[in-house]
Amino acid sequence: MFRDAAFTDVRRTDVRRMELDELAPAFVMDEEAFRAFYERTARGVWAYVARVTGDRQIADDLLQETYYRFLRANAVHDSEKHRRNSLYKIATNLAKDARRRSRTHPFDPAGDEIEAAAGRDHGPVMERNTDFTRAMAHLKPRERAMLWLAYAEGASHREIADVLGLNPASMKLLLFRARRKLAAFLRGKR
């Protein structure tokens, strides 16, 4: 009788596990491929969200969510670039949503403690970094995003337009304007 009860428990556990396996959708990407992709892209995505939102805390919060949504989308990508663009598109949308949720979280130019966090003493670098952070704070989030994608990630106009949901034909002009605006702030002309 005891053996039967134990056997029934085992069977139940197995059935439950099988049910869970059936319910849980398999990701298109396997663990090994995901981990390699994550290692290649995570720091870039984190830096992108941190710069676009102006808040490293938000970047910390959104990183896991970005990769989860990427996995759940189960999209098949024809190239590494395409996969990367999808990831940045998800990160952009999440940053947009985070901003809508918390309008009381402005870009804080004085809160850039990147150097301090890294535990290094780079006087001129720190100064340059603070100037850049201040200059970025004057730009619209969309301008920050397109500049970062263009000059930190080396994305093409078409890729930037795709990630930000903009018309590719207007990208060149929008990027030029954003760049001019940032350069003016960096030179202290505005």
């Binding site: 995901f34 981990r35 994550y38 290692e39 995570a42 720091r43 870039g44 984190w46 830096a47 941190a50 710069r51 490293r56 970047a59 910390d60 990183l63 896991q64 990147i114 150097e115 966090a117 890294a118 780079h122 670098v125 340059r128 970094n129 850049f132 500049l147 970062w148 000059y151 930190a152 760049r179 940032l182 350069a183 960096l186 030179r187």
Partner: peptide, 23 residues
């Protein structure tokens, strides 16, 4: 000016992030 500044910031910012383990 813009490309060098953003590139420099990227190189400083990327290692500063607390990135969770891929596993």
């Amino acid at each position: 000016l813009v490309a060098c500044t953003i590139g420099g910031d990227r190189d400083t910012l990327r290692p500063a992030g607390a990135i969770p383990d891929s596993g």
